[in-house]
Amino acid sequence: MSDTPDIAEHLATRAQRDDVLELGMWTFLSTEVLLFGGLILSYFVYRHADPQAFLAAGRETRIVIGTINTALLLTSSFCVAAALQAAEQGERHATRALLGIAILLGLSFLGLKGLEYVEEYREYLVPGIDFARTGENAHGIELFFIFYFIATLLHGIHVACGIGVLAVFAALATATRASSRYVAGLRTAALYWHFVDLVWIFLFALIYLPGRNS
């Protein structure tokens, strides 16, 4: 690692390298917005088609797990933001510790999500595999849970990728010389992690909150 030059041969300055990385990540995130965007449109189309069923389906979700998971992700985002700040100030042990906490929070998120899937499977709420609901709202509930599973699985894959990236940066935090390259890389990775958090904020509002007051 210490042998690699600080800047790639096709770039001129460190500032250019940092700009390129940051702009590249923002461009990537804008594609991610539209990747989830297709699902969001589906959600609104079907919610509009059958509003009562979506309220009923929202009540079937696990609000406790959902809320805890949201808090976990928000906190992990805070840890990553703090880790970046620590790295910028050369506090590499703090960086590693904070990234470690963020990774643990991310893993807990995935664990709880898995638990939630198991409970939904037990209640016959998995379309395509085992879905058994009857009554007037059954079709709408099925559509809701199709959206729920695809959106949360897609989000879960993003969380898993993010954990992998954070793990790399946690491992490198104290292994290398303090370098501007590391900080630039971590800033880019942090953007990704915050974005995963941001997607969840909206998924939480769409999935867990409908129909709670009735």
Partner: peptide, 17 residues
């Protein structure tokens, strides 16, 4: 750049819905 994704998402939702 950060806003672009959300702007285009708005187009998708607006004309799609």
């Amino acid at each position: 750049f950060a806003a672009a994704g959300f702007f285009w998402l708005a187009i998708l939702l607006w004309l799609g819905l």
